[in-house]
Design a protein around this nucleic acid. Sequence first.
DNA 1: ATCAAGTCTGTAACTTGTTCTACATTAGCG
DNA 2: CGCTAATGTAGAACAAGTTACAGACTTGAT
Lengths: 210, 210
Amino acid sequence: MTAESRADHRPSATPPLTERQEARRRRILDASAQLAARGGFDAVQMREVAEAAGVALGTLYRYFPSKIHLLVATMQDQLQHMHTTLRKRPPAGAVPAERVAETLMRAFRALQREPQLADAMVRALTFADRSVSPEVDTVSRLTTAIILDAMGAEQPTPEQLSAVRVIEHTWHSALITWLSGRASIAQVKIDIETVCRLIDLTAPRRPAGR
Amino acid sequence: MTAESRADHRPSATPPLTERQEARRRRILDASAQLAARGGFDAVQMREVAEAAGVALGTLYRYFPSKIHLLVATMQDQLQHMHTTLRKRPPAGAVPAERVAETLMRAFRALQREPQLADAMVRALTFADRSVSPEVDTVSRLTTAIILDAMGAEQPTPEQLSAVRVIEHTWHSALITWLSGRASIAQVKIDIETVCRLIDLTAPRRPAGR
DNA sequence: ATCAAGTCTGTAACTTGTTCTACATTAGCG
DNA sequence: CGCTAATGTAGAACAAGTTACAGACTTGAT
């Protein structure tokens, strides 16, 4: 299988870390996720993360130059998980639009299990300013890869890529409205299904319903 | 009928303000917009807003219980402007989808003139947590009203309302990617046009088929 | 094994959002 | 008019993100 064509997600120009450094990084990310899962964005306090990870505050800041960087990296980490999980059990729908909607709903259910963690990650993602662009972009590319996987589009047209971008927009924004209690789970579902109709609209050839 | 009528954008249970209070509120909102226009989200510092508005810090917090509340209120204010401006020169497109896209692009161009102000308002909007839900909801209703106006849909179907919600999602999220420098103006335009195609899909009378 | 350069640690300081307190002013009402 | 509660003012105090720094520890090359 060509299962690793788009699978290289790590930032490219990172000098290799020693084993202990890799371990520190992991402890930090785990501590971050754990604190986030408990109390959301506000509960991820840099001093607490440092202490929980057994690392000095200055070190934490050397690894992640801001709280936002840390949480975006945490999201990267979680997305990685999700992506491999999804690859193991691909969506079953007959039509691309269905498969994408199913995939996103599966991801959504995963987030519902840890709503506080979702809160921390999504808020960080949308609050990120230019200094975090590369990292946010990595998250975005991961999300795109997941959606394209679900579509089964090897060679997406520019039109399809636009549709995917719009789907991502909707996905993020719908999550936010859900997290802030302004939309129900049912409404998020409807929004996702609605936007996925765009995929039919942009299929390379005629939609050819079956 | 209660004070909560469809076009009433002000929070309902607000005791009437005296003239001096109305003036203070206005000075605060103006100061906020001015500081935001200069340096974006970070430049809106509560002490500075208070000083610029000629008001004590405690008073500022009595009027707006947090920086996020303040910036969301600022957005409400600006949207109000935009709405009345748009009503004066309605979009000219022949088809609802075109008119909505035109309207959003007009709003987008307005934001481009004050990108820093846009940054402050949009970041506040998406960062807002549950405590700001009512205010964010007001902004959302205003946006919905603007889009429905452009569609010319007096009696929108539930399907159309879903489409409008998805358009709003795309609008907010596309703005964020633009503000953080991850998408070009051209790309935002494409995304808006792409999502507006959903309106055709959900028009009450459909084209042939299915 | 040794040395230089780079990393970590612990801790204090600084910034800005937010809260608190003590006092002054204002608004509404008898 | 004169009182009382609400509102406003000035400024200190507190919280959490971020930065700074001196000293200890790895690490990698010689």
